[in-house]
Amino acid sequence: MKITGYRTLTAQQHWRRSIGDVNGHINEAVTEVPIVILETDSGLEGVGIGSHADLGRLFPAIEGEDPRGTAALFDRMLAQVFKSGHAGATYGGIATFDAAIWDLKAKAADEPLWRTLGGRDRFVPGYASGLDIALDDEELAAFYAEFAERGFVAGKLKGGLDLDADLRRLGILGDALRANTSRPGLMFDSNESWQVKQAVRYVSALEEHVDLLWVEEPLRRWDANGHARLSASIRAAVATGENLTGVDQFRPLFDAGAPDIVQAGAIWGVSHLHRLSLAAAARDLPVSPVGYNANPAVAHVMTAVPNHLTTEVQALTFADGVVVDHEFTDGGIVLSDAPGSGIRIDEALIDRHRDGGGWADPAGPHMRPTRAGLRVVLDGVER
C-alpha cells in the first residue's frame, strides 16, 4: 500500500452557544474544522483533522510511502522542513497528515486505532469544558447539567478578570456536577492572561473558597520559571503546554519543573501526543489533551500511555459532516471498535451546512488583547 495523494475539506462546528475565554468570545459561534483525506493505491483513505498549514511542502515526504511506517513518516515530515523549522502552524500540517497516516495503518490492520496503538480498554476518562466565559449563569448551569447527565464529574471554567464572578460561576459548575459526586473536580483556565504575581494573588483568593484540581495556562506559554514559581505558591496543580508545537518545546518547562500536568493541543497529532506522553511519564507527570472535539484521534492515544489523567470534551456534538463512532457516557468517551480512528466524513453534508464566518471573527479568543497581563482590575472592571 502506497500513499498517492490527498484532498482537503473544511467543515464547520456550529456550537449553538457563545464560546470564548478571557481574550474574547464569539457569539452564536461557528468555527472551521480543517480536514485532510489521505489517498492510497489500495483504495483505503485516511482521515486527519486539525490544520491545512504547509501540506504542499510536507507531502513529498510521504508521497509513495507505505503508511504503516508511521514513526518514520512523522520524522520524514519533520526533516522535510528542517531549514524553515516545524514549529507553529507548520506543525499543524504535520500532525494532521500524521493522524491520517495512523488512521490508514489501523484500517489496514482491520482494527480500531486504540488497539493498533496498544490500548487495552476503549474507555477514556474525560471532563466537561464549556469555553464558557460568555455564557450567563443559566446557560452555564444548563451546559454542565447536560454533561452531568452523561456521568461527568469534573469541569473547567474560563475566567480570570472578575474574582467575584468567577467564584459564583465555579459554584454553579460545581452544583451541576454534584449530581454525580459530593466533590466535583473543578479546573480554572485563564488562557495566558496573568503575570506571575497576578496569578498567585488571584488563585490564592479562589482557593480560600474552592478546592481547584488545576489552574490552566496562567502565564505565557514559554514562561518556564514563572510556572515553576507559581506552582510552588498555590495548592492547585499548574497545567500548561496546549499551545506548544513539538516535544522539543517542552524541554525548558521540564527542565524548570514547571508543569504539574502536561497538556497537548488537539491538532498536534498522534505521534506527537504519544511521544510527549512518554516524555512526561519519564518525569512522573500526568498528561491531559485538550479539545477532543477538534480531533477525536487523540483519545485513542490516551488508551495506550501509562499517564493519562483526563481528556477535555467541549461539546456532545461534532462539526457537520464529521461523523464519529463513539459514545459519551460514564463521565468519559467510549471509543469505536470499527477499524481506524472511528471518524467518517460526509462530504455532501459539509457542503450543505456551510454557514457563518468561522474563527476569523476579530472579537474571538484567538486575538490576544493589547492589555492582557497588564490590566489593573479590582472588581472586574479595568479603569
Rank of each mutant, 00 (worst) to 15 (best):
G160Q: 04
K156C: 00
I133L: 07
T181N: 08
K107I: 06
E146W: 00
D110M: 13
R169H: 04
G119I: 08
A100N: 11
L157P: 12
W114G: 01
A176G: 10
A179Y: 12
Y127G: 10
M187R: 05
L177H: 07
G118E: 10
G155N: 12
G185Q: 01
F143N: 07
F152K: 03
L157M: 13
L135Q: 05
E192A: 12
G160C: 08
L157S: 08
D110P: 13
G171H: 12
G119L: 05
L117H: 03
S204C: 04
S182P: 15
R169M: 01
E207K: 05
G130C: 11
D110R: 15
G159V: 13
A176Y: 07
Q198W: 06
P125H: 10
A205K: 05
E149R: 04
A148H: 03
L104A: 14
A108W: 15
D121N: 15
L170I: 11
L173P: 07
G160E: 02
D121G: 06
L177I: 10
L177Q: 06
R115L: 13
G126V: 14
G151D: 13
L135K: 02
F123V: 02
L163K: 07
L104S: 13
D121W: 13
V153K: 05
K197T: 02
P184L: 09
L170V: 07
D121A: 11
F143I: 02
K107C: 03
W114I: 00
L161P: 09
N191F: 06
W194Q: 01
R201C: 00
L186R: 12
D121L: 07
L173D: 12
D136L: 11
W194D: 01
Y144G: 00
D132M: 07
E146G: 07
Q195C: 06
W102M: 04
R122G: 08
G151H: 09
S190A: 10
G126P: 14
E149T: 03
L163G: 03
K156N: 04
D136F: 13
S182K: 15
P125R: 09
I172H: 03
D137A: 09
W114F: 10
K158Q: 12
F188C: 00
V153H: 04
S193Y: 08
E192Y: 14
Q198F: 05
L161W: 13
V203T: 09
W102H: 14
E139Y: 05
D137R: 10
M187G: 03
L113D: 09
V124G: 09
A100H: 06
E146M: 03
G174H: 05
F143K: 08
G159E: 14
E111A: 11
D132Y: 08
S204N: 06
D164T: 09
I172C: 03
